Amino acid sequence: MQADAVLNAKGLLCPMPIVKLSQKMKTMTPGQVLEVQADDKGAAVDIPAWCQKTGNIFLGSEPGNSYTSYFVKKS
Rank of each mutant, 00 (worst) to 15 (best):
C14W: 12
C14G: 03
C14R: 11
C14H: 15
C14F: 15
P15H: 00
P15D: 01
M16Y: 15
M16N: 13
P17I: 04
P17M: 07
P17F: 06
P17A: 08
I18P: 01
I18H: 01
V19S: 08
V19D: 14
V19N: 12
V19T: 14
K20Q: 15
L21D: 08
S22M: 08
S22D: 15
S22R: 14
Q23A: 07
K24Q: 14
K24G: 02
K24T: 14
K24N: 05
K24M: 13
M25G: 01
M25P: 00
M25D: 02
M25F: 00
K26T: 15
K26A: 15
K26L: 11
T27E: 15
M28R: 04
T29I: 04
T29F: 02
P30H: 10
P30V: 12
G31L: 12
G31C: 09
Q32T: 06
Q32P: 10
Q32V: 07
V33G: 00
V33N: 03
V33K: 02
L34Q: 03
L34M: 06
L34A: 04
L34T: 00
V36I: 13
V36E: 05
V36D: 03
V36G: 01
V36R: 02
V36L: 08
Q37E: 13
A38G: 02
A38S: 15
A38T: 07
A38I: 04
D39G: 07
D39P: 07
D39N: 14
D39Y: 07
D39E: 09
D40M: 11
D40Y: 11
D40T: 12
G42H: 10
G42R: 14
A43E: 05
A43P: 05
A43D: 05
A43S: 15
A43M: 09
A44R: 13
V45M: 14
V45K: 09
V45I: 13
V45W: 07
D46V: 01
D46P: 00
D46A: 09
I47E: 06
I47N: 02
I47P: 02
I47Y: 03
I47V: 10
P48D: 11
P48T: 11
P48M: 10
P48F: 07
P48K: 10
P48W: 09
A49D: 09
A49I: 09
A49Q: 08
A49T: 13
W50M: 00
W50Q: 01
W50A: 03
W50K: 01
W50C: 02
W50P: 02
